[in-house]
Amino acid sequence: MSQRLQEPSFLILSSLAGGAKHGYGIIKEVQELSAGAVSMKVGTLYGALDRLAAEHLIEVDREEIVDSRLRRYYRLSADGAVLLSTEATRINTQANVALRRLRVAGMHP
């Protein structure tokens, strides 16, 4: 699969790989996954969710009404899982190559 994921999309899919979540749940999880480096804005999150839903990488899991407010939960689709797996493998391979070379050069323990 030649499709590449941008960092926000990668983090959102990674967070959904742990189970269905609603918007705020995704924001919190993304912050944790990135060790606090990424603080996703709500506008950015929904732009990414729209795009991922249009590409059938995520789907609506369920809707709940909590304190009279709509809460929509999203889950990873089968296509999304395949893409996330491919992308994670690619990043992992590239990172391993980089670390190996740094080690050979004596610049990494």
Partner: peptide, 28 residues
């Protein structure tokens, strides 16, 4: 749905939208 998440994301005592959030909402 967006209103719910915006309210959940708001800090305690926050009265107005933050600039970064405004920019992201404008983009959306």
């Amino acid at each position: 749905e967006i209103l719910d998440v915006l309210e959940e994301s708001a800090g305690p005592g926050q009265q107005r939208p933050r600039l970064g959030e405004l920019v992201a909402l404008a983009g959306l």
